[in-house]
Structures are given as structure tokens and as C-alpha cells.
Write a protein that binds this DNA or RNA. Structure first.
Length: 492
RNA sequence: GGUCUCGUGGCCGAGUGGCUAGGCAGCGGUCUGCAAAACCGCGUACAGCGGUUCGAAUCCGCUCGAGACCUCCA
């Protein structure tokens, strides 16, 4: 916890030294998914990015309260049926109660996150469970003169707010520019200005998700839930707020305006934004229809996929790029990640078996220090991974007898590699499990048969055993120390 | 149109004034009955043009190209 961490703060557009408000406690809020469809690769990015932040800060000894919401109050579609939101629409199409849709996709989201080895947040609040808090905020905003009611709906008065604050400070926007450039959309005649946003919307007759309020039967504006829930669980001012770059404006800008109005101060010290995942250079997104769901990656059932990719491959692929860079999807890139991950995990296993030597021919401590330094520098996982690959090379060299480590260094190396691979990067073995001992016995038998064949120079049989095993995904390797085997396919 | 970001070797992807990124693929070698794995070695990459500098992929300007946000979006 004595380390100096640098975090890139969107608010200042620079890296800043991380100083928690109340060490050792850290408050972390991240915008979660709207549960009206299966999570796609884009959803995996913030989940894994902030899982890494959560894990690293925890590893260093911080007591992190990580809040990631579930948006289960659908916001309005901009074009489709007036007064209908995404969740309600899905519910109508499938003849379900909206909360059935929410439950179904929430469960599937949780399953995907578990597959990706993303830790559960400390608190996972739902927007629908915090309607009272949101109504209370609307009341406060009206009282402060920053909102106005029209026909049962309440809007935030951006112009009024901007007189005492700077609306646009996070996204770098200037209100006059917004005024000149915002497109005029249909059905927004209730607003005084096009950039005003809804705090409370009166429900149309056909709108099934609705709650009573002082203004109308309706539902809260989308931006309000994060303000209400982050405040409830993390207070008026907390350390880190995360989310995708596409939420920067207007969502996070609106959050600041709402919280500032009600609590009199900026709600967040460090704003972190992960970049987008692209496909052929274009953002992967629902509205563009070019997304691939996580389930499709895991089973290979999508025309753009040449094969299935395991959850750990996806996780590793994302961690191999810095979170503030765009990351371009391609089969080739995924396959490279798969092979790289295999190499890293294999190295970790070899490490378990290494024997200490009388002297150290590698600088383990130095490498470890560089690895930590990489993470301290705005969570630079790709650099940390590069150093881990250096460690893998050292490990394999020692196994080949081309160097050695003292017992102390070997112990240090094991501790470091385990912490990084397992605790911080959150990578885990994907094969094996309960059948593994049975599998060992069977493969062991075949290995013995093959050894006998080789002993009588029957290489045809020996090769046949190895090739046939290879076909079902079991790879045999004749090493100096005997035969090793592993399951190569991730498609099983 | 406004605001902003990016353009790195066959692919992905770090870095950022002088010092090896890394992974995958490829080539050569060691080892091996063969193969695989592993290890060793190899590629004179920083969109283009100009400028600043002793020195730039890294700073500045221009040009070209790509993308994000401005509307729901991770």
C-alpha cells in the first residue's frame, strides 16, 4: 500500500497520483449493463478492466468497496414506439413481465462474468430498487431551481446549472457549442433546450414499467440511477468512477451536474474510462449490429468466428491491450492470445517443479519490481504481461539446465508469478477438474503402451498412438525427463 | 459542422526525445528415431511532407487516412 499509483483522470486529461480520500478504504463505482440482451465482447471490456483495478488495489491492501449497478429500468428508445423502453419492448415481444426479462438476462450476465473470472462487486444495486432515492434527488434538484416540470415529466435545466457551474467539464464541451450543434430530435418539445435531460418521465399509457411519484406515474431518467446509487453506497464524494468512453457524454456529465446540484460538490475524484472494442476498425455495438456475444465466442457460433474461444482467452486478449486503447477484434488476434496464454500457463506449471540451485543467474527481484511498476502506471497490464513472459523464458531456461535460482529467489519468483497471474490478472486453468485423475490414468496407460512399442522399435505403433491422441486433443511431448501430455484443444 | 482520439514490422499490441517491449506467425540452429515443446539467433516498424534539436517513431506544423462523442450504446 506504500506504492505510488498513477491513474489517468479523464477530468484533468492527465495521469494523477492516486491518493484515496480515506485510506485504506477506496470507493469504486462502475456503470453496469442494461439487461435487455446477452452481454457481448464490448461488455467484457469494462468488466475486466475494473476487475483488474479492483483486484490490484485489493492486492495492495486497500479495502475496496466496489459498486457496479444493474440497469433494469429501461430508458426510452429514441426512434421506436414512443414511450417504450428497451426492456419493456423486449417483454412485450416475448409476452413476459419486464422483470422476467431483467431476471433472465441478469442471470446470464452473471454467468458470463463468472466464466470470465470477473469477481462479483461488493454491491450490485439495481435501478428499480432505488426509485425512492431517485425521486428524492429529483425533489432536491427542483428545490435548488435546477429542474422544471412539464406535463408530469421533470427535466434538468442545464442552462441554469451552467450559470454557477461548468456543464461539460468532464467531456470538454462548451454549452454554447452544444447549443449550436445539437440535433433537433422528435418528441422533445417539452424541453426548454435540446441538451436538457430527463430526471423523471411520465409513462405513456402503454408503458408497463412505472412507479408513482409526486409528478406522475412514470419512471426515472437514465442518468439519475448512477447518481442516486453511488451516493447511497459510497457517499457524496468517492474515489473512482469508471465506465466506457461512450458514457462520458452525456451520461457521466449529467451525473456530475445532478450530484453537484444536490450535494454541493463534485461526486468523484478520479474518472476512468475504458476504450472501445472495434471490429474492422469500427466500434462494436448494439446499435451498429456488429456485435458478437460472449456466448457466441465461447461456442464459436457466429459467422465471423473461425472457431470457439474460451473465456480465459477472451480475458487474456483484453488484458493484453491497455484499457485506454481501442482493441481490434480478429480471429488471428484471438488465436495469438490463445497461444500466448497457453505458453504463460504452461510456464507457471513448470515453475512448480523447478529445483533450487546454488546461485541465481537471473535478476528475479528486478523483474518483479518492473512488473509492479507497470501496474502502478495506470494499470498497464500489457507491460506486466510482457514481464511475465520474460519470467516464462527464465523458467524454461532453468528447466533446460541453462541457469539456476537460489531457494530464496525461486520462492520469490513463485510468489510473484502466482500473485500476478492468479490474483491480479485473474487467469485460471480451464481444463482438468474432476475427470482429470481418470484422464491421467487412461493417458498414462497409452503412454506406457507407446513406450513398449518404442522399446521394440515399433515406431509405427508409437506414432499412431501419439497421432490418434492428437486428433482428440491430447498432445504428447517426449522430453528428456520423460513423456508429458496436455490437452490442447479449447473447443471441447 | 463542433469536440476529441488514433495511424507502430505479416497480424495483435506496448512505449514515447538517445538505451531489447511482449505475444502470434515466419526463418535458421540446439535437442530429438521423427514430431511437438523448450532454448539460442534472425527481421534495419514507427502514415506522408516539412520544422525544432547534437539526436525524433516520440515535440511542433501541414497533408492524407481511420475512428469516437455530439441520439440509446460498455
Amino acid at each position: 500500500m506504500q506504492r505510488e499509483i498513477q491513474i489517468y483522470n479523464t477530468l484533468s486529461r492527465t495521469k494523477e497520483r492516486f491518493e484515496p480520500l480515506n485510506p485504506p478504504f477506496v470507493g469504486l463505482y462502475v456503470c453496469g449493463p442494461t439487461v435487455y440482451g446477452d452481454a457481448h465482447l464490448g461488455h467484457a471490456r469494462p468488466a475486466i478492466t475494473f476487475d483488474l483495478v479492483f483486484r490490484y488495489l485489493s492486492h495492495l491492501g486497500y479495502k475496496v468497496r466496489y459498486v457496479r449497478n444493474i440497469t433494469d429500468v429501461g430508458h426510452l428508445e429514441n426512434d421506436a414506439d414512443e414511450g417504450e423502453d428497451k426492456i419493456a419492448r423486449k417483454a412485450r415481444l416475448e409476452q413476459l413481465e419486464p422483470m422476467e426479462v431483467v431476471q433472465y438476462f441478469t442471470d446470464r450476465y452473471h454467468l458470463n462474468m463468472a466464466q470470465l473470472n470477473v469477481k462479483s462487486p461488493s454491491i450490485e444495486p439495481r435501478a428499480s430498487g432505488h426509485i425512492i432515492e431517485q425521486i428524492e434527488m429529483v425533489r432536491e434538484i427542483l428545490k435548488a431551481g435546477m429542474g422544471y416540470e412539464v406535463n408530469g415529466s421533470v427535466y434538468f435545466d442545464v442552462e441554469a446549472y451552467n450559470r454557477g457551474h461548468r456543464y461539460g467539464k468532464l467531456s470538454g464541451r462548451v454549452l454554447d457549442d452544444l447549443l449550436a450543434n445539437t440535433r433537433a430530435l422528435e418528441g422533445q418539445d417539452e424541453k426548454r433546450n435540446p441538451f436538457d435531460f430527463a430526471l423523471w418521465k411520465k409513462a405513456q399509457p402503454e408503458h408497463i414499467m412505472r412507479w408513482p411519484s409526486p409528478w406522475s406515474e412514470g419512471f426515472p431518467g437514465w442518468h439519475l440511477e448512477c447518481s442516486a446509487m453511488s451516493n447511497r453506497y459510497l457517499g457524496d464524494l468517492f474515489d473512482i468512477h469508471g465506465g466506457g468512453m461512450d458514457l462520458l457524454f452525456p451520461h457521466h456529465e449529467a451525473e456530475i451536474a445532478q450530484s453537484c446540484t444536490v450535494h454541493g460538490k463534485d461526486p468523484v475524484k478520479y474518472w476512468m474510462h475504458n476504450n472501445m472494442i472495434t471490429i474492422e476498425g469500427q466500434k462494436m455495438g448494439k446499435s451498429l449490429g456488429n456485435f458478437i456475444t460472449l456466448n457466441e465466442f465461447f461456442n464459436g457460433a457466429h459467422v465471423r468466428l473461425e472457431k470457439a474461444f474460451s473465456p480465459m482467452t477472451i480475458r487474456f486478449f483484453i488484458l493484453q491491450a491497455h484499457y485506454r486503447s481501442t482493441l481490434d477484434f480478429s480471429n488471428e488476434a484471438l488465436m495469438a492470445a490463445e497461444k500466448g496464454l497457453e505458453r504463460l500457463m504452461a510456464g507457471r506449471k513448470v515453475l512448480e517443479q523447478l529445483k533450487p540451485g546454488s546461485e541465481s543467474t537471473f535478476d528475479v527481484a528486478g523483474l518483479q519490481a518492473k512488473c509492479y511498476a507497470a501496474m502502478d502506471d495506470d494499470f498497464n497490464s500489457p507491460i506486466a504481461i510482457a514481464h511475465l513472459f520474460d519470467a516464462v523464458r527464465i523458467i524454461n531456461s532453468i528447466k533446460d539446465g541453462k541457469g539456476s535460482l537460489t531457494a530464496t529467489d525461486l520462492h520469490g519468483l513463485r510468489e510473484w508469478v502466482e500473485s500476478f497471474v492468479v490474483d491480479i490478472l485473474g487467469l485460471k486453468e480451464e481444463v482438468g477438474g474432476s475427470e482429470s485423475s481418470l484422464m491421467s490414468d487412461v493417458v498414462g496407460l497409452l503412454i506406457r503402451l507407446r513406450a513398449e512399442a518404442k522399446a521394440r522399435k515399433d515406431f509405427q505403433t508409437a506414432d499412431e498412438i501419439r497421432d490418434e491422441l492428437g486428433k482428440v486433443g491430447i498432445v504428447l511431448k517426449d522430453t528428456r525427463d520423460g513423456v508429458e501430455w496436455q490437452i490442447s484443444g479449447k473447443d471441447i
